[in-house]
Design a protein around this nucleic acid. Structure first.
Length: 573
RNA sequence: CGGGGCGUAGCGCAGCUUGGUAGCGCACCAGGCUGGGGGUCUGGUUGUCGCAGGUUCAAAUCCUGUCGCCCCGACCA
């Protein structure tokens, strides 16, 4: 039994000045966590119990699925990460350090390499597969901007699993098992979430899904079709636009459009000089970028912006994308800022990409590559030809669902889990092979699966808190029951103590507020702030032999005879 | 990387413009009253004023540098 009189806890009356989001504010105020440095937090007793409860649920579900727990160091030598090139690729996000001999080490940001090497060193036969291993470990990433308390930290707790299979079918099966285990896990954690298709990344089109907990303070944006259930990270959202046939459209025509460097100004002048009815959607925006230093132009409808994150995620084989600066325009005098058009792309030395919305056969108003001039009737396929179609335009609420064409909504969420078919990238880089039936070496195929454990604590807090404090689901609360003894006589304290014992005998963990020197008001406020699901008040009602049982979420209260309290409490959990 | 803001007691803040040797609330300690909604009275404890340098008889305050923290933007052709 935890006793408030001796619990290492100090709740704060005021919100900490550096906390913005609810989970951060309340976890600090309620004495769960304390900040040590940007994105680095300590866990106090109540917080650490909660974190371990989340870990326990995850561990139980992983074990139930037949995955085996191992544990790696967080401190790792660089060699394995050099073999997969991540020592370079991770860049400044990687915490690097040297030992006394000058050897390079890192604090693991994720452990694909180590798991791959472990399986390599132990297993060498197809008969050993499949196998799935996991660990719960601290991860270290030197984030450019740690944020929102525990939601994006530089040190955080992650459960990472890796599956190893001989065949693609095997990988599909392992992936499905993890997906099912994640569903069970997040359900038990009391999280609301959507499973959303995510970017498969640069490595060969394998499957990837994210578990997103909807929450206004989340950092991820995703689309959801309420009609058919389609859900996708905006980066992975597919747009389908039918090709048109505007081959018979009139020939291109140059228009005099003075002082129209922006879409808005262009639309105004078009409507003024060339008839009404032009909208931004009729114009074609040519967004110039440098892809690894080479100029490219991305074509999107004028009423859309380019979403750089989507573009980057979908443009494979390119390391770095940068917007054209005035300097870049100066280096390419043929590219007239504000009046760029795709029809002369070859002559101008620009590689053309188009968003799918700029479908083959569509006709546009676009820049004439001359100052103060635009062209109309510029037809895709006749007057210009993109080398590829890539998802680049921003997604808007109401856009058509790729599955059912219904309108999608856009929502924000916290990414709490990510499951991913890695394929053979790491196994190849680190030569993880097993002998097949014919005695031939086969490269193993892998999946990787992550749950943000500490982040899940924050996500649950975000989804369950109210104006007065935290409000945990029973499964992860630091205790199931919070008993508050009030008054100055001994009796309520004795009754509370006894009741605590009875509840513990029923298997319910108890936090007992046995502080003699605090007023009832202080104890009630603390109980609400701390957020244990059932609160039992032992005080006034004791005159009739009763205690008051309150449900933290919703606040319903009822008085029951002391003897009936344990059964009632148990029924509420 | 850019923009904005902030570093003064465990927490929240004032003091800085106009330099004179640090204050308020909460918390904490002692005692009294109160005892079901952060109650009250009296007395107390707590500070390298982020750090370094400079100006000055004198710096929390002015100047320079530096470190740290928070928020916003990572973009509009």
């Amino acid at each position: 039994m935890l006793r408030m009189s001796s619990l290492f806890l100090r709740t704060l009356r005021d919100d900490p000045a550096d906390a913005e989001v609810a989970s951060h504010r309340l976890l600090v105020r309620a004495g769960y966590i304390r900040r040590i440095a940007a994105g680095i937090y300590s866990w106090l007793p109540l917080g650490y119990i909660t974190l371990r409860n989340v870990e326990r649920v995850i561990r139980e579900e992983m074990d139930k699925a037949g995955f085996q727990e191992v544990h790696f160091p967080a401190l790792l030598p660089k060699e394995a990460y050099e073999a997969t090139n991540r020592w370079q690729e991770y860049g400044p996000d990687l915490f690097r350090l040297k030992d006394r001999k000058g050897g390079d080490y890192l604090l693991g940001p994720t452990h694909e390499e180590m798991f791959t090497l472990m399986v390599k060193s132990e297993y060498s036969s197809y008969k050993d597969l499949p196998v799935s291993l996991y660990q719960i470990q601290n991860k270290y990433r030197d984030e450019p901007r740690p944020r929102s308390g525990i939601i994006r930290g530089r040190e955080f707790v992650m459960k990472d699993s890796y599956s190893f299979d001989l065949s693609d079918e095997g990988l599909n099966f392992s992936y499905a098992k993890h997906r099912a285990a994640y569903i069970d896990t997040f359900n038990r954690l009391g999280l609301k979430y959507n499973i959303v298709s995510a970017m498969s990344g640069a490595m060969g089109g394998s499957k990837s899904e994210e578990f997103l907990a909807p929450c206004p303070t989340g950092e991820d944006t995703y689309v959801l079709c309420e009609k058919c259930g389609y859900a996708a990270n905006v980066e992975a959202m597919k747009t389908t636009v039918a090709a048109k046939d505007s081959q018979s459209a009139p020939a291109m025509e140059e228009l005099d459009t003075p002082n129209t460097p922006t879409i808005d100004s262009l639309v105004d002048v078009l409507n003024e000089k060339y008839g009404s009815g032009f909208t931004a959607a009729d114009t074609l925006k040519n967004v110039l970028l440098l892809a690894d230093g080479k100029p490219i132009s991305v074509l999107v409808p004028g009423d859309r912006e380019v979403d750089l994150k989507r573009l980057e995620a979908n443009l494979s084989g390119v390391q770095e994308i940068a917007l054209f600066t005035d300097e870049d325009f100066a280096k390419h005098p043929d590219l007239v800022k504000g009046y760029v058009g795709p029809q002369d792309a070859k002559r101008l030395g620009v590689t053309l990409y188009a968003d799918p919305r700029v479908a083959p056969g569509t006709s546009w108003v676009t820049g004439a590559n001359k100052k103060n001039r635009h062209m109309r009737n510029v037809v895709n396929g006749r007057d210009f030809e993109p080398v590829a179609y890539i998802e680049a335009a921003e997604v808007k609420s109401g856009d058509a669902c790729p599955e059912c064409s219904g309108p999608v909504i856009i929502d924000r969420a916290i990414e709490i889990g990510h499951i991913f078919q890695l394929g053979r990238k790491y196994a190849e880089a680190l030569s993880l092979t097993v002998l097949d039936k014919d005695g031939k070496a086969q490269v193993v195929t892998m999946g990787s699966y992550g749950i943000g454990v500490s982040r899940a604590v924050a996500a649950i807090a975000e989804q369950t808190h109210d104006e007065i404090g935290l409000s945990w689901p029973a499964e992860i609360a630091p205790a199931k029951v919070h008993i508050v003894a009030t008054g100055r006589e001994d009796e309520p304290f004795n009754v509370a103590e006894q009741l605590g014992g009875q509840l513990e005998a029923l298997g319910l963990s108890v936090l007992l507020d046995d502080r003699r020197d605090s007023s009832a008001g202080v104890k009630f406020k603390d109980a609400e702030l701390i957020g244990i699901p059932v609160i039992v008040v032992v005080g006034k009602a004791l005159a009739e032999g009763k205690v008051e049982v309150r449900v933290r979420k919703g606040g319903e209260k009822q008085e029951v005879l002391v003897a009936d309290a344990p059964a009632l409490v148990k029924s509420l959990l």
